[in-house]
Amino acid sequence: MALAIGSPPLPATLLDIGRIYLEPAAALHPRGAEVLARFPHAERIEVPSHWNIPGLHGEEGDAERWLATKRGTLVLGIKKGLGMRPNGRSADFIAPSTSNGCAMACAYCYVARRKGHGNPITLFVNTDAVATAIARHAARQGPKPGPNQVDPRDWVYDIGENGDLSVDAALYGGVRDLVEAFRAMPNAKGSFATKYVNRALLGYEPQGRTRIRFSLMPEAPSRVLDVRASPVAERIAAIDDFVRAGYEVHVNFSPVVVYEGWTADWSALLERLDASLSPAARAQIAAEVIFLTHGAALHETNLRWHPRAEDLLWQPALQEEKLSESGAVNLRYRHGKKGRMLAVFRDLVARHLPCCRIRYAF
């Protein structure tokens, strides 16, 4: 079956770039020049640093301004830090991010907990340097000594920790640079999660060296929480095409949000997924299960622009404060309750999607 590799333009409701903030060096890089040529009529504003742009990051303005900023603003920068961070959960290592921020505005987003919902996409144009750093790091690791929960054979590098690379790929060729780089690494593969279906990625020829993880949740909460993301049905329908195109395709059941009727909704989603997967997809499918992490500050932010989301996310009777690895105070489901809910979720997957192993859950 021939694959359709063309991708329609991003809908203007998602991205319609009219203003570009850029570090001067970014304009001199070929990938930066590519972006600027794509948006020749966009206003250009030089800034000394992509990280600190007054009035752009944080909680300034109202909801309409946040979403308009995400839709119409882009930031171009140079990635300075090229170190790898050990992980051991979703990946063996977290690679330097080639983007920060997102065109979407999911109500539970951890980036929003740090930089505000108005944080637009920042593209780091020196993806060649990032790819070179990953290749050198992987070469130093040598062969993986044995299987672990991340992968049985390869070192896995998460290349999309702070953005959605499917959307980034519609803006420039930096994502293709990374996919192509992993083809040449005999002991490593890339990995990123996405909530956006960009069918142009089907033409990248990953040759099994890139893992794409489609994030899924039941449709009812997704319609409230996955703001501006591709519909869940579209993400499910894309799985087989991405498998045929040479990607390793996993799923993220994330975040798992607990509400009245949540187990019935997840049962229906898992059954739908089980019925839709081809034999090739079933042979490689694996899942990450991530229960909701929330926070009081994000709760207050959401009340300003999307209070319906908090009907699902804010459940004080079920949640407790917990200090994150970064030192932030977050809200997670209470320890004893969460253990029981995890056991329930594992049982749902075993019953309704038995072909899917759970790589890790928390």
Rank of each mutant, 00 (worst) to 15 (best):
S166V: 02
A328E: 11
N87L: 14
E46A: 09
A343K: 13
P143G: 00
R183M: 12
A188Y: 00
P48N: 01
D62K: 11
I53Y: 13
A275R: 15
V249H: 10
E320T: 14
Y172F: 15
V243I: 07
A297M: 12
W66C: 07
L342Q: 11
L28R: 01
D151S: 03
D226P: 12
L10N: 00
L201A: 07
V349P: 01
E288Y: 08
L303V: 02
C109E: 02
V150N: 10
Q207F: 03
L14H: 09
A188R: 00
T98N: 08
V258D: 09
E310D: 15
T98L: 11
L171W: 13
G58E: 06
G88N: 07
N162Q: 06
P30C: 10
A184K: 15
R85D: 02
E321T: 12
K115C: 03
Y259D: 04
A26L: 06
K322R: 13
I20C: 02
R65V: 02
G81N: 15
A103T: 01
E161Y: 14
G83A: 08
L348H: 12
V224Q: 07
A328D: 04
R136M: 01
Y333G: 14
A275L: 11
A25P: 01
G142V: 10
W66M: 01
D16M: 02
A103E: 05
K115M: 14
D274A: 10
A181Q: 06
N198F: 01
A184C: 06
G118P: 10
M84E: 06
P221A: 11
V111C: 05
S326L: 13
